[in-house]
Design a protein around this nucleic acid. Sequence first.
DNA 1: TCATAATCGTTAGTGTACTAACGATTCGTG
DNA 2: CACGAATCGTTAGTACACTAACGATTATGA
Lengths: 159, 159
Amino acid sequence: MNTRIASDAERDVAASDDLLALENQVCFALAVAARGVIGLYRPILEPLGLTHPQYLVMLALWQRSPRTVRDLGSALQLEPATLSPLLKRLEAQGYLTRERSTRDERALDVSLTDAGRALRAQALEIPPQVVDRLGMSLDELGSLRDRLTEVIAAVQHTA
Amino acid sequence: MNTRIASDAERDVAASDDLLALENQVCFALAVAARGVIGLYRPILEPLGLTHPQYLVMLALWQRSPRTVRDLGSALQLEPATLSPLLKRLEAQGYLTRERSTRDERALDVSLTDAGRALRAQALEIPPQVVDRLGMSLDELGSLRDRLTEVIAAVQHTA
DNA sequence: TCATAATCGTTAGTGTACTAACGATTCGTG
DNA sequence: CACGAATCGTTAGTACACTAACGATTATGA
């Protein structure tokens, strides 16, 4: 993966004026950046037995537990259909339990197990590792996060 | 989808100091932003019979055609295993052909059909629609794209 | 109180996105 | 020239991510 994303622009001299040029598409830059950064997590999360989406679920549960599937979906901007098998696999790994809520039998209470709670200590080492590998400053990353948060707000404003 | 991404931060007062707080994770903001923006494309691309990744492939081929699978993978930062079925479906839709290269029989020449080339005219209407729905200025979007391009470069620098 | 509408999580189906393995072809080196 | 290494695209396997549909439960309004 040593080909830079600009390499095609160098070959297509008119690309900067082309509405449909790949490198002019924010959606493309978002997709590639997201995939790239998530890819950095993969080897780091592997020893913990987590995929990146599972890591995000754990982050949400470390913040607050128990939570319903609906609540997790809202926090993570994911559909219940995505979360259902994902949570099932995390339950199978012993990190969480899913129990029918006593307040509303349609809902599940997703709770951390002791193993799930204990995993947080290892997870604390992850962000610094990723930041280190990325080689971007905390200011840059913070600023980027703020910009992305604005994009997310704009998208949600269209609904 | 009317719950803002900040809603959990409002409830967890210590979140801003928490290394593992969801809203502090750039990877989470990237994932949600990418998914959100790509989601805006879905209803727009549907009449053209394209998914978002397929749209990106078409963008790459409109820029240059024919291209090998390897070349497309490089331009789009996607693995051949991802592209293979994706291109197969685009071929089935009549937008492109895949022929064994005469220069190197390991390679395929992926070429636009007349229908594939003609589709570009409709595609020209897509970015303005998305920008309009998003409600962000072209300057903002351009600046964001530049920042994301830096992230992509940083990720690629780790390889 | 009762019927209808809404909500919850699961399942099914489709399309990615990644890693691993493979057969066929090409390249590089001795 | 011969042989091992590298490359190409496909297939298999796993895990998402989305839409649609469903059965069970809850909420709402007459």
